[in-house]
Each structure stands twice: as C-alpha cells, then as structure tokens.
Design a protein around this nucleic acid. Structure first.
Lengths: 128, 128
DNA sequence: GCCACACTACTACCGCAGTAGTATTACCAC
DNA sequence: GTGGTAATACTACTGCGGTAGTAGTGTGGC
C-alpha cells in the first residue's frame, strides 16, 4: 500500500478537512469555506489542489467544466501518522510520556480528565 | 517574549536534543553524535547550526577558534509547542480526542496504561 | 618559516509548501 | 455570434529545511 507521504502543511491539512466534511468540493467551494479564515486567491486554492493531486492526496472527477475534488487519504491515516511522529519523535515512543506532557502543559478540564480515564479503562478491558 | 518560530525540521530537532544533552557542543561534537545515525557532511551540520542561530534557536560563544553552541530554546517549549499544534490542529483542541486516538491506533502496553491512569489521578488531585 | 589541519564563511542547489499572476478555454446570456 | 464570466493550465517566486562543496584563515607541529 503506497501510503503517500503524509507530512502535510497547514493549508493542505485544512483543505483535506474541508474535503472530509463534504466528500466532494469544487475549487470554488473550498475557496469559499477558506474565505473567512484566510484571504487566499482563488488560483492559490486551485494550485494547491493540483499539487495535492500530484501527491495523490486528493483526486478529482469532472462535472462539466468543473473539477470536483475528493480526499484520497483518510482522516484516520493522517492523524495516525501525525500521532506516530509526535510520540515517536518527541517522546521516544513513550505514549505515557507524551500524555504526561500534554497533561502538565495544558489546561485540562475535569470533564476531559474523566473522559480520558474512561478511555483508559476501556483500553484495559479490550487488552485483557 | 518572542518565542522564536518553533516549527522544527527533523534534523533541527535532533540537533537541539544533542545540545540539551550536553549544554554546549562544537560542530565537531554534534557531527560526531549524529555520525552513526545519519551520514552527514561536517559542513552540513555547521550550516544547519548557523541557520538555527539566525532563527535564534541556538547561540554560540567562541572558545579559541571553535564555536561552542548551546540551545536557546528549552526542550519544554518545543514539546509544548508541538503538543499544542498536534492537539489543536488535528483534534480541535480536545485532549481527550487526541488521547483517544493515540490509544486506539497504537499498541499500548499494560504498563503504559497503568502509568497514564496514575497520571490522570494525579492531575485530578492537583486540580481539586 | 612553512605546511597541514581544523574551523568558519559563503554560495549553491533541491524539494516542497504557499502564494498568486497571466493565459487559455468553454459556456451562457442576450 | 459576441462578450463577459468562470474554470483550469502554466509559470513564477519566496521561504525554509536539508545538504554539501569551496574558499578563506588562524594555529600548532616540526
């Protein structure tokens, strides 16, 4: 399975998120969604999509004159790859270290702590 | 506080790790440590260090003709920044989502689960 | 005194994200 | 059918990580 290189820039990730949301989107669609958050030229979005297609991150079909793009990589694969890099590269693979660091350097709400606790219990149940 | 841009490449991170380990290091030192893992030209390391100095990631003092570099950014700041980016960018800031994802897409040992559980309990105690 | 060596400085190049302008083309309205 | 519009195609440029060669220079050994 040729996992296309999954090191993504911010814009690329943002575009993928948009495509994950709506399955298919034209350049105009993506541009419109991006509009409020960043002021990008229409052609910038088009160029980015074409570059991403070259890297097999997205694909397209034609509807009349319009290209409808869709994501070729799953959100899952991207987040997994990012997680691996994060834990592996910065904490030598120790998930506990990574979580520890996240817990101590961020504000974490009681609710989140409860949620995570539950996740751990579930993981244990699955493992055992 | 001007946090210098903390988006680091792999080599840069590796170099910082080396500097964190030994406080000060010459180009030759860094090159020697890197040697077994990646075959880099001496000048590559020197160039990288100079570039990193331009970005204020490292600084140097001169000992005779030799530059002794030291890290200007703390390991802490780098991992925090990376953590923020990871959680913020990929999980909309939800630490629980991030941890959940890490737990389900990786092999996690019993021991690690126990460790994390303990961390959660501690965090709760601190919070309350 | 001279040579080799160890350093740093400078320059260059690739790949890729990001950004955008210009050119081309097809279609729709009237 | 002609003009405007909306679409893609092509090209270009910046910045940066990564990589490395070459040039310049000071120092120590003999």
């Amino acid at each position: 399975m040729n996992a296309p290189n999954l090191r993504l820039g911010d814009l690329q990730l943002r575009i993928l998120e948009i495509l994950w949301d709506r399955t298919e989107a034209s350049v105009a669609d993506v541009h419109a969604v991006l509009k409020p958050e960043r002021e990008l030229a229409y052609t910038t979005v088009a160029t980015m999509l074409r570059k991403m297609e070259a890297r097999e991150l997205v694909g397209h079909r034609e509807e009349g004159r319009t290209f409808l793009y869709r994501a070729l990589v799953q959100a899952d694969a991207v987040t997994r790859s990012a997680g691996e890099h994060f834990v592996g590269r910065l904490f030598e693979g120790s998930l506990a270290d990574a979580v520890s660091h996240l817990l101590t350097t961020r504000e974490v709400s009681r609710t989140e702590l409860d949620q995570i606790e539950k996740l751990i219990r579930e993981a244990k149940r699955r493992a055992k």
